[in-house]
Protein backbone atom coordinates (compact mmCIF):
# COMPACT_ATOMS: atom_id res chain seq x y z
CA UNK A 1 0.00 0.00 0.00
CA UNK A 2 1.56 3.28 -1.03
CA UNK A 3 -1.08 5.93 -1.17
CA UNK A 4 -4.75 6.32 -1.69
CA UNK A 5 -4.43 6.49 -5.46
CA UNK A 6 -2.38 3.33 -5.72
CA UNK A 7 -4.61 1.47 -3.35
CA UNK A 8 -7.77 2.39 -5.20
CA UNK A 9 -6.24 1.22 -8.44
CA UNK A 10 -5.18 -2.04 -6.83
CA UNK A 11 -8.68 -2.59 -5.58
CA UNK A 12 -10.06 -2.03 -9.08
CA UNK A 13 -12.57 0.37 -7.70
CA UNK A 14 -11.70 2.88 -10.32
CA UNK A 15 -11.18 2.87 -14.00
CA UNK A 16 -8.98 5.07 -16.12
CA UNK A 17 -10.40 6.73 -19.19
CA UNK A 18 -8.90 9.61 -21.12
CA UNK A 19 -6.57 10.46 -18.33
CA UNK A 20 -9.38 10.85 -15.82
CA UNK A 21 -9.98 8.53 -12.96
CA UNK A 22 -13.60 7.85 -12.22
CA UNK A 23 -14.60 6.11 -9.07
CA UNK A 24 -17.53 3.98 -10.02
CA UNK A 25 -20.17 4.58 -7.42
CA UNK A 26 -21.66 1.13 -7.23
CA UNK A 27 -18.36 -0.60 -6.92
CA UNK A 28 -17.17 1.94 -4.41
CA UNK A 29 -20.22 1.36 -2.28
CA UNK A 30 -19.62 -2.36 -2.26
CA UNK A 31 -15.93 -2.26 -1.61
CA UNK A 32 -15.51 0.78 0.50
CA UNK A 33 -15.57 -0.95 3.83
CA UNK A 34 -12.99 -3.40 2.67
CA UNK A 35 -10.76 -0.61 1.39
CA UNK A 36 -11.18 1.39 4.53
CA UNK A 37 -9.87 -1.45 6.65
CA UNK A 38 -6.71 -1.55 4.62
CA UNK A 39 -6.15 2.15 4.40
CA UNK A 40 -3.79 3.91 6.65
CA UNK A 41 -3.86 7.64 7.01
CA UNK A 42 -2.07 8.81 3.93
CA UNK A 43 -1.99 12.25 2.45
CA UNK A 44 -3.62 12.64 -0.92
CA UNK A 45 -1.27 13.06 -3.83
CA UNK A 46 -4.00 14.24 -6.21
CA UNK A 47 -7.06 16.40 -5.73
CA UNK A 48 -10.10 14.35 -4.81
CA UNK A 49 -13.03 16.15 -6.39
CA UNK A 50 -16.72 15.58 -6.86
CA UNK A 51 -17.21 14.77 -10.56
CA UNK A 52 -19.38 17.76 -11.38
CA UNK A 53 -16.60 20.07 -10.17
CA UNK A 54 -13.61 18.16 -11.54
CA UNK A 55 -14.39 19.44 -15.04
CA UNK A 56 -13.60 22.95 -13.85
CA UNK A 57 -10.20 21.79 -12.68
CA UNK A 58 -9.32 20.64 -16.18
CA UNK A 59 -10.63 23.81 -17.78
CA UNK A 60 -8.54 26.02 -15.50
CA UNK A 61 -5.49 23.86 -15.97
CA UNK A 62 -5.80 23.90 -19.74
CA UNK A 63 -5.92 27.67 -19.73
CA UNK A 64 -2.93 27.89 -17.43
CA UNK A 65 -0.94 25.64 -19.71
CA UNK A 66 -1.88 27.35 -22.97
CA UNK A 67 1.26 27.92 -24.98
CA UNK A 68 0.56 31.60 -25.45
CA UNK A 69 0.89 32.24 -21.74
CA UNK A 70 4.01 30.20 -21.15
CA UNK A 71 6.28 33.06 -22.07
CA UNK A 72 4.77 35.59 -19.72
CA UNK A 73 3.57 33.40 -16.86
CA UNK A 74 7.00 33.36 -15.31
CA UNK A 75 7.06 37.15 -15.17
CA UNK A 76 3.78 37.45 -13.31
CA UNK A 77 3.60 37.32 -9.54
CA UNK A 78 1.79 34.10 -8.65
CA UNK A 79 -0.65 36.02 -6.45
CA UNK A 80 -2.00 37.56 -9.64
CA UNK A 81 -1.86 34.45 -11.78
CA UNK A 82 -4.71 32.78 -9.88
CA UNK A 83 -6.95 35.78 -10.52
CA UNK A 84 -5.88 35.94 -14.15
CA UNK A 85 -6.69 32.26 -14.55
CA UNK A 86 -10.16 32.90 -13.18
CA UNK A 87 -10.50 35.83 -15.54
CA UNK A 88 -9.52 33.75 -18.54
CA UNK A 89 -11.97 31.05 -17.51
CA UNK A 90 -14.67 33.70 -17.08
CA UNK A 91 -13.86 35.03 -20.57
CA UNK A 92 -14.10 31.53 -22.00
CA UNK A 93 -17.49 31.05 -20.35
CA UNK A 94 -18.67 34.49 -21.45
CA UNK A 95 -17.67 33.99 -25.08
CA UNK A 96 -19.44 30.63 -25.04
CA UNK A 97 -22.60 32.44 -23.98
CA UNK A 98 -22.47 31.06 -20.44
CA UNK A 99 -23.22 34.33 -18.68
CA UNK A 100 -24.22 32.58 -15.43
CA UNK A 101 -20.95 30.67 -15.43
CA UNK A 102 -18.99 33.86 -15.98
CA UNK A 103 -20.93 35.57 -13.19
CA UNK A 104 -20.30 32.69 -10.82
CA UNK A 105 -16.56 32.99 -11.36
CA UNK A 106 -16.69 36.71 -10.58
CA UNK A 107 -18.64 35.96 -7.42
CA UNK A 108 -16.09 33.33 -6.41
CA UNK A 109 -13.22 35.73 -7.07
CA UNK A 110 -14.93 38.52 -5.20
CA UNK A 111 -15.46 36.27 -2.20
CA UNK A 112 -11.83 35.25 -2.21
CA UNK A 113 -10.01 38.41 -3.28
CA UNK A 114 -12.47 41.26 -2.94
CA UNK A 115 -13.99 43.55 -5.52
CA UNK A 116 -10.65 44.57 -7.00
CA UNK A 117 -10.33 41.09 -8.46
CA UNK A 118 -13.64 41.53 -10.26
CA UNK A 119 -12.32 44.69 -11.85
CA UNK A 120 -9.38 42.77 -13.22
CA UNK A 121 -11.58 39.88 -14.35
CA UNK A 122 -13.91 42.24 -16.17
CA UNK A 123 -10.93 43.65 -18.05
CA UNK A 124 -9.73 40.18 -18.89
CA UNK A 125 -13.18 39.31 -20.23
CA UNK A 126 -12.84 42.36 -22.46
CA UNK A 127 -9.57 41.04 -23.84
CA UNK A 128 -7.22 43.34 -21.92
CA UNK A 129 -5.05 40.53 -20.70
CA UNK A 130 -4.40 39.28 -24.21
CA UNK A 131 -3.36 42.81 -25.04
CA UNK A 132 -0.89 42.72 -22.15
CA UNK A 133 0.36 39.33 -23.32
CA UNK A 134 0.91 40.59 -26.86
CA UNK A 135 2.72 43.70 -25.63
CA UNK A 136 4.92 41.61 -23.36
CA UNK A 137 5.84 39.28 -26.19
CA UNK A 138 6.63 42.32 -28.31
CA UNK A 139 8.91 43.72 -25.60
CA UNK A 140 10.69 40.40 -25.40
CA UNK A 141 11.17 40.39 -29.15
CA UNK A 142 12.58 43.91 -29.00
CA UNK A 143 15.24 42.66 -26.63
CA UNK A 144 14.03 44.09 -23.32
CA UNK A 145 15.61 42.39 -20.35
CA UNK A 146 13.63 40.01 -18.21
CA UNK A 147 13.85 42.31 -15.18
CA UNK A 148 12.48 45.22 -17.23
CA UNK A 149 9.59 43.06 -18.34
CA UNK A 150 8.85 41.89 -14.80
CA UNK A 151 8.69 45.46 -13.52
CA UNK A 152 6.55 46.62 -16.43
CA UNK A 153 4.17 43.70 -16.25
CA UNK A 154 3.55 43.66 -12.53
CA UNK A 155 3.24 47.43 -12.47
CA UNK A 156 0.61 47.28 -15.20
CA UNK A 157 -1.39 44.60 -13.45
CA UNK A 158 -0.98 46.25 -10.06
CA UNK A 159 -2.33 49.47 -11.49
CA UNK A 160 -5.37 47.72 -12.87
CA UNK A 161 -6.10 46.08 -9.58
CA UNK A 162 -5.29 48.71 -7.03
CA UNK A 163 -5.38 52.12 -8.58
CA UNK A 164 -7.19 51.80 -11.83
CA UNK A 165 -6.68 55.43 -12.72
CA UNK A 166 -7.31 55.67 -16.43
CA UNK A 167 -10.09 53.22 -16.98
CA UNK A 168 -13.02 51.82 -15.12
CA UNK A 169 -15.74 49.31 -15.65
CA UNK A 170 -19.46 49.87 -15.43
CA UNK A 171 -21.58 46.92 -14.42
CA UNK A 172 -25.29 46.48 -14.05
CA UNK A 173 -24.86 47.22 -10.34
CA UNK A 174 -23.35 50.66 -10.91
CA UNK A 175 -25.68 53.63 -10.72
CA UNK A 176 -25.52 56.75 -12.87
CA UNK A 177 -24.42 58.64 -9.77
CA UNK A 178 -21.53 56.24 -9.27
CA UNK A 179 -20.41 56.64 -12.90
CA UNK A 180 -20.55 60.40 -12.54
CA UNK A 181 -18.52 60.25 -9.33
CA UNK A 182 -15.90 58.06 -10.97
CA UNK A 183 -15.49 60.55 -13.82
CA UNK A 184 -15.38 63.57 -11.52
CA UNK A 185 -12.78 61.91 -9.32
CA UNK A 186 -10.54 61.18 -12.27
CA UNK A 187 -11.01 64.27 -14.39
CA UNK A 188 -11.41 66.97 -11.70
CA UNK A 189 -9.89 65.64 -8.47
CA UNK A 190 -6.99 63.80 -10.12
CA UNK A 191 -6.77 66.03 -13.19
CA UNK A 192 -6.60 63.24 -15.74
CA UNK A 193 -7.18 64.18 -19.35
CA UNK A 194 -7.99 60.74 -20.75
CA UNK A 195 -10.34 58.20 -19.20
CA UNK A 196 -11.80 55.03 -20.66
CA UNK A 197 -15.06 53.51 -19.54
CA UNK A 198 -15.71 49.89 -20.40
CA UNK A 199 -19.03 48.17 -20.32
CA UNK A 200 -21.09 45.39 -21.82
CA UNK A 201 -24.81 45.52 -22.47
CA UNK A 202 -27.32 47.95 -23.91
CA UNK A 203 -28.61 49.09 -20.55
CA UNK A 204 -25.14 49.99 -19.30
CA UNK A 205 -24.28 51.77 -22.54
CA UNK A 206 -27.39 53.93 -22.24
CA UNK A 207 -26.58 54.65 -18.61
CA UNK A 208 -23.12 55.91 -19.53
CA UNK A 209 -24.43 57.99 -22.44
CA UNK A 210 -26.88 59.71 -20.12
CA UNK A 211 -24.06 60.59 -17.72
CA UNK A 212 -21.89 61.88 -20.57
CA UNK A 213 -24.70 64.10 -21.82
CA UNK A 214 -25.31 65.36 -18.30
CA UNK A 215 -21.65 66.16 -17.73
CA UNK A 216 -21.32 67.88 -21.10
CA UNK A 217 -23.90 70.40 -19.84
CA UNK A 218 -22.34 70.72 -16.41
CA UNK A 219 -20.42 73.99 -16.20
CA UNK A 220 -18.32 72.65 -13.32
CA UNK A 221 -17.04 69.75 -15.38
CA UNK A 222 -14.25 70.49 -17.91
CA UNK A 223 -15.14 70.51 -21.59
CA UNK A 224 -14.42 67.20 -23.27
CA UNK A 225 -14.69 65.13 -26.43
CA UNK A 226 -15.71 61.53 -26.38
CA UNK A 227 -15.85 58.54 -28.67
CA UNK A 228 -17.71 55.27 -28.43
CA UNK A 229 -15.92 52.22 -29.77
CA UNK A 230 -17.61 48.86 -30.11
CA UNK A 231 -15.19 46.14 -29.13
CA UNK A 232 -17.80 43.54 -29.87
CA UNK A 233 -21.14 44.43 -31.42
CA UNK A 234 -22.34 40.90 -30.84
CA UNK A 235 -21.95 41.27 -27.08
CA UNK A 236 -22.55 45.02 -26.97
CA UNK A 237 -19.08 45.51 -25.53
CA UNK A 238 -18.13 49.16 -25.66
CA UNK A 239 -15.33 51.46 -24.61
CA UNK A 240 -16.13 55.12 -24.16
CA UNK A 241 -13.06 57.31 -24.46
CA UNK A 242 -13.26 60.62 -22.68
CA UNK A 243 -10.73 63.27 -23.64
CA UNK A 244 -10.63 66.55 -21.77
CA UNK A 245 -10.06 69.53 -24.10
Amino acid sequence: MTDLLKLLIDEEVIKIADGIIKIISEKLRKKFNEIKKKLEKKKLSKPLLVSEFAEEYYKLKNISRAEKYNLIKKYIDSKYWSIILLGMRAREAYLAGDIDGSGKIKKDASMRYGRDAVILINLIIQGYFDEIVDTTILQKEKGKTNSDIVVWLNDKIEKYIKFFPFAFWVSILDSSIKIKEELIRRCITNGLTNVNIHTIGKENIEKIEEVIIELSKDKHFPKFNYSKDYESEEYNAVTFKIEIK
Binding site: I20, I23, F32, K46, L49, S51
Partner: peptide, 21 residues
Amino acid sequence: MKKIDVIEFEKEVLPQILEFF
Protein backbone atom coordinates in the same frame (compact mmCIF):
# COMPACT_ATOMS: atom_id res chain seq x y z
CA MET B 1 -0.59 4.70 -18.34
CA LYS B 2 -1.98 8.16 -19.00
CA LYS B 3 -1.21 10.94 -16.57
CA ILE B 4 -3.77 11.15 -13.84
CA ASP B 5 -4.58 14.57 -12.46
CA VAL B 6 -7.69 14.17 -10.39
CA ILE B 7 -9.52 11.47 -8.53
CA GLU B 8 -13.20 12.01 -9.12
CA PHE B 9 -16.07 10.70 -7.09
CA GLU B 10 -19.76 10.76 -7.67
CA LYS B 11 -21.87 12.88 -5.34
CA GLU B 12 -23.79 9.81 -4.22
CA VAL B 13 -20.78 8.40 -2.41
CA LEU B 14 -19.96 11.55 -0.47
CA PRO B 15 -20.81 9.98 2.93
CA GLN B 16 -18.37 7.15 2.27
CA ILE B 17 -15.65 9.53 1.12
CA LEU B 18 -16.12 11.66 4.23
CA GLU B 19 -16.07 8.59 6.42
CA PHE B 20 -12.64 7.81 5.07
CA PHE B 21 -11.40 11.12 6.46
